[in-house]
Simulated scan of single mutants.
Amino acid sequence: MTNSLYPHGSRRTPLPPAAVTSLQDTAAPSPASAPAAATPPATGQASARAGAGKPGQRDAFFDNAKYLAIVFVAMGHCWEPLTDGSRSAEALYMFVYTFHMPAFIIISGYFSRSFDMRPDRLRRLITGVAVPYILFEIAYTLFKRTAGGDPDHPFSLLDPWFLTWFLVALFVWRLTTPLWKIIRWPVPVALAVAVLASVSPDIGDDLDLQRVLQFLPFFVLGLFMKPEHFQLVRRREVRILSVPIVAAALVLAYWAAPRMTSAWFYHRDSAQELGAPWWAGVVMTLALLGCSLVLTACFFAWVPRRKMWFTVLGAGTLYGYLLHGFLAKGSRFWGWFDADWVHEPYGQIAVTVIAAAVVTVLCTPPVQRIFRFAMEPKMEWAFKKDATQLARARNRP
């Protein structure tokens, strides 16, 4: 049907307004990056509190959760050299590794719900995930060759080193998002994939596919979570119930510390590669998934809902994640943990505080501005102009 005032299409229908996008960290995009139509409906207070608010407005809860999760990541890395001589450090290490990355990945999935194969989103995936992966893989390789005293350490984009596995995983998970949206039972299928991966030693180390597949259920779960699910775990009774659950988890971790290897929590090896029978992969995958979901819910229950002094740092968590890796590995290369005082209780507390402070600084806006060229490059020169944007520019008065 044509407009009666302008028959035969002599005047074009105005193009829709350009979508306003805001700066986001690739580990967990801000609510502003998702169009309102792609956000699950919520009503009243739940909508205002769970990230379904006005476009361009960040939700303090998710920024707080991302910041606290990255602090736990940094503390876990500083505890790793202490685990050999301290049962308490090993217990805390296993406890934190049960939920810190699952929490991060669930949030990543939650804010990937609107991802499709639209050109602008593919460009953001390349500039915000693929390019940082390449740059940091090069930087980590050079760092290990120089500071690590391994001049023959090979450079390979197929073999992520240390922290860069998460960028590979995020790239793969986001690309498969449209697939999970069309199948009937996405979470059970993702869980089946994780279980099969845990008993498949032939997968190998390329692209850290074991981690990609074994952590997959958390991302898919996040894809199908709604604001009311986060409201549910933030209820007062859940916070109260989480206290004895966390206490019991710490006791269980202290008991398990000398009896099992913490390698199960990395999800980077099959059961056979860990010296266990194949069926142990099935049992451990399901058991760890359950433990991770429970402790992640406890973590979310205690994340502040209001704006805090560290809320602004939630937008820079990927900066802190990747940059603190140089210090985490450098501390081993340079023998910082060889000092006896570090292994004393007061030394372990001091190291923990230092790790939290360092990663906090690395998430700050000044650090983001310095390293934005590597983490969020625009790279407009590398992409073709979008036809819609060109048409909009021509019609702009």
Rank of each mutant, 00 (worst) to 15 (best):
V359T: 03
V189T: 15
R305Q: 15
L286I: 09
P345K: 00
F104Y: 13
A257H: 05
F62I: 09
R58G: 14
G330L: 08
A194Y: 11
A393I: 04
S4D: 14
L293D: 04
P31D: 03
L191D: 02
D150G: 03
W161Q: 13
P365Q: 12
L82Y: 00
F72A: 12
L293A: 06
N64R: 14
V294D: 07
I138Y: 12
M308S: 11
T43Q: 12
V199C: 08
V243M: 08
S114L: 01
T83F: 00
A37R: 04
F326Y: 15
L163M: 10
A356N: 07
L221Y: 02
A89E: 00
H343T: 02
P377A: 14
F162W: 03
T127N: 13
K384F: 10
L15G: 07
T296C: 14
L323E: 03
P31C: 04
W165Q: 12
A18N: 05
R124Y: 06
P40W: 12
C298F: 11
L167E: 12
V246R: 02
F171T: 14
P304K: 07
D116E: 08
W278F: 09
A276D: 07
A355S: 15
T2C: 05
L323M: 12
L250G: 02
A280N: 08
R184V: 14
L157Q: 01
G44Q: 06
L232Q: 10
L289Q: 10
T311M: 10
L289S: 08
F326A: 01
F218D: 01
Y321L: 15
A287T: 10
P258A: 05
S47N: 06
G204Q: 02
L191R: 03
M379A: 15
M375Q: 11
A263S: 15
T39G: 05
V294R: 04
A249F: 11
R392Y: 02
H229P: 02
K329M: 13
A169D: 07
A130R: 09
Q272D: 13
T164D: 01
M75E: 11
H324D: 10
G9W: 01
A89Q: 00
G281K: 05
I354F: 02
A32W: 01
L295D: 07
D150M: 12
V342T: 00
F111R: 08
L213K: 05
L142R: 12
T83I: 15
Y133V: 05
A18V: 08
S47Q: 15
F219C: 06
G222Y: 01
V303G: 11
V238W: 13
T296L: 09
L288A: 05
A19E: 13
D338H: 12
H100V: 08
N395D: 14
A350K: 00
A60E: 04
F115I: 09
A190M: 08
T21F: 13
V233I: 13
F326I: 02
E80F: 12
L223V: 07
A382R: 05
W334A: 13
A253I: 11
P14F: 02
G314D: 13
V20H: 08
P201R: 02
P277T: 09
R394K: 14
Y140E: 10
V312P: 03
Q272W: 04
R305W: 07
A52D: 06
D63R: 10
R259W: 01
L241R: 13
R113S: 05
V358K: 04
S10N: 04
P29H: 10
A253H: 01
I182W: 10
R121H: 05
